[in-house]
């Protein structure tokens, strides 16, 4: 069953169309990732889901979250959902537990219930020792975990996260991914935006790659890889590649692209790429499996758009 149903939704800011006839569905208990470069419309799409951005009216686009339309019933949706915004907007004046207690009021949680819930959430996110800490004393990773704890105060059925791990160190990222996986196994539906391809690959059951407000592709991350890109990539600095290859024939079924000083050779057959490395006379190269980032760059292009 779908928790979120988005159908042909658009959003315009003046003449700019930030989101353009986007459609997707998020199944209950799954983790759905919205991927795209900055300015692709990811955050705008999320805000339309919980009602802090209004979709274009009267163009036939619809959004349903738990069967509610955010344009009419934002309170029901917000009550059932937890939101982790892109910025850590914690109250610096208050300490950790006060931040959470103030927020618990919005859900009408009785003080005793709120305190129990907060204790277990702080334990879950490994912040129990920081219960009385000031916000300024927290590291970036701790602040992020605290914002996630805040979003979980009302035991949400849907958790919405806007770039949950941007700017965090690898340890914290892995910890957050692990917690998100645990929440999903507990039945929480998760919708997140990210530009970390690894993040999408690690935790998403389904990803939608969007660019300039439109859907480019959507599938299970593994299938996106299998169906849209060769299995292996060989990366060589462009000047070396040019010298080595100069006029020579490449093996069959090797695709090349040159961008930003790097030549990339794609092929499903590892041995054929090794033939290319043999032409290099010992120059440095990097031979690896293709990943979601390659798919992403292939889909959205390597050049920067005006909003990046």
């Amino acid at each position: 069953m779908a928790v979120i149903g988005v159908d042909k939704v658009s959003k315009s800011f003046g003449r700019l169309r930030a989101v353009c006839e986007l459609s997707f569905a998020v199944e209950a208990g799954s983790c759905f990732g919205l991927l795209g470069p900055n300015g692709a419309g990811k955050t705008t799409m999320m805000k339309m889901i919980y009602g802090t951005a209004a979709r274009d009216a009267n163009d036939g686009g619809t959004i349903e979250v738990f069967g509610f339309d955010p344009a009419r019933d934002e309170l029901s949706i917000k009550y059932l959902s937890g939101v982790v915004p892109q910025e850590n907007n914690l109250d610096d004046e208050l300490n950790v537990i006060q931040n959470l207690l103030v927020y618990a009021k919005f859900y009408g949680l009785p003080a005793r219930v709120a305190r129990e819930r907060i204790a277990s959430l702080l334990a879950f996110l490994e912040l129990s020792e920081k219960v009385k800490a000031r916000i300024r004393e927290l590291s970036g990773g701790m602040k992020r975990r605290l914002v996630i704890a805040r979003a979980l105060l009302n035991n949400p059925r849907l958790l919405i996260l806007d770039e949950p791990t941007t700017g965090l160190d690898p340890q914290v990222r892995h910890l957050i991914w692990e917690k998100l996986r645990q929440l999903r196994s507990g039945g929480t539906t998760i919708l997140l935006t990210t530009h970390y391809m690894e993040e999408a690959f690690q935790i998403c059951d389904r990803v939608l790659i969007m660019d300039k407000g439109r859907k480019v592709m959507e599938d299970h991350p593994q299938r996106l890889l299998e169906q849209n890109i060769e299995r292996y990539v060989l990366e060589i600095p462009q000047e070396h590649a040019a010298k080595a290859i100069d006029g020579r024939r490449l093996p069959e079924a090797v695709r090349v692209d040159h961008a930003q000083g790097i030549s990339r050779f794609y092929c499903d057959d590892l041995d054929r790429l090794k033939v290319v490395t043999d032409m290099l006379n010992g120059q440095a190269y990097y031979l690896r499996q293709a990943n979601l980032e390659d798919v992403f760059l292939k889909a959205t292009g390597r050049g920067l758009n005006e909003k990046q």
């Binding site: 069967g67 029901s76 009550y79 059932l80 109250d91 208050l94 009021k105 859900y107």
Partner: peptide
Amino acid sequence: MRSSETIPYPHLAWRLYSVWYRHMRVY
């Protein structure tokens, strides 16, 4: 879908109070 479900979000007076409470605590 479950749109017939009634969601027990807090009533108006409580919502205003919770905004007030946030400012009061910070102040």
